[in-house]
Amino acid sequence: MTRDSHLHATALGATTADADLRLVGRLASGDLDAAGELYDRHAGKVLALARRILRDQGDAEDVVQEVFSQAWRTATRFEPGRGSVAGWLLMIARTRSIDRLRAKHARPDTTGDILLETMPGNSVAPSDQVIANEQYARIREGLGALPAEQRTALELAYFEGLSQSEIAERLAAPLGTIKTRIRTALTTLRRSLRP
């Protein structure tokens, strides 16, 4: 990417993120048309994440409804400084999906409440959105390139919300091994962010 095209892309990304922020502002004032536009922009990603976690189209669609309901109800409390709109919606999607997964499997809910506050959307300022998108692409590639055992452990933690002990039990591996796999996987993915 040339410098000019990068600048152009950055400007476009900022515009996209700004447009998202304006939509959330309109949402907060009870504008249903803004809800429709926000849905059109993000429902595909939200549904994809919910489907990845729940592996069930019907449940994932229910989660999409919950995500946009929560966004509608709490748009007045959205804090732009805490991250992007996409990150916010995906954070809600992950939390709701894992809650649902836990309810179905009747697992005790030990993390669901916490995810809302610690999950994505809390670090990327909207103006950095294009850079963030490039970084997300690197993470996606990096995830695909991880050794299978590391990838499985990380995916169980992220997409199923399992604790490290639960993963150890699921994979019939020692807890220390699981901790090492997840730590190594995350270290590799963090390195992939650096040029």
């Binding site: 994809a48 990845r52 996409a86 995906l90 997300y136 995830l143």
Partner: peptide, 10 residues
Amino acid sequence: IVMEGLAHSP
């Protein structure tokens, strides 16, 4: 950022 990347990965 890694967590956000995972959320965007599907």
